[in-house]
């Protein structure tokens, strides 16, 4: 299952709830303000790094770039994808859950 999160983890608990309720075969894509959840050295980095043990995490590149961020700002092993990659993730995963 593909889970998208579009909220900053510093504003709303969407990422936290997503991490609590995803099963192990899931992928997470951070979009819009959700991309802030991919940053390293934050108060949520540890829980994201912990989730990476079982869950592949992606971040939407155009949203990252728009916010003045790039790969160097991110937790390692988070993959940056474009909209084409976003579409492909929704195809590879049979179901989609959007945490708003």
């Amino acid at each position: 299952m593909l889970h998208t999160v579009n909220k900053s983890p510093f504003e709303k608990n969407s990422l936290e709830t997503c991490l609590r309720l995803i099963d192990e075969s899931s992928s997470i894509l951070l979009i819009e303000d959700g991309v802030y959840g991919a940053l390293k050295n934050t108060s949520v980095s540890d829980s994201v790094i912990n989730a990476q043990k079982t869950t592949k995490i992606y971040v939407l590149g155009p949203d990252l770039k728009a916010r003045g961020l790039d790969k160097s700002s991110l937790i390692s092993n988070i993959e940056i994808i474009d909209y084409k990659g976003f579409v492909n993730l929704t195809i590879e995963n049979e179901k989609i859950q959007n945490w708003l």
Binding site: M1, L21, I22, D23, K95, I96, Q97, N98, W99, L100
Partner: peptide, 13 residues
Amino acid sequence: MKKLITDSEVIFN
């Protein structure tokens, strides 16, 4: 809850 979500096919938020 995790299982309920995983077993669903169309999810509305």
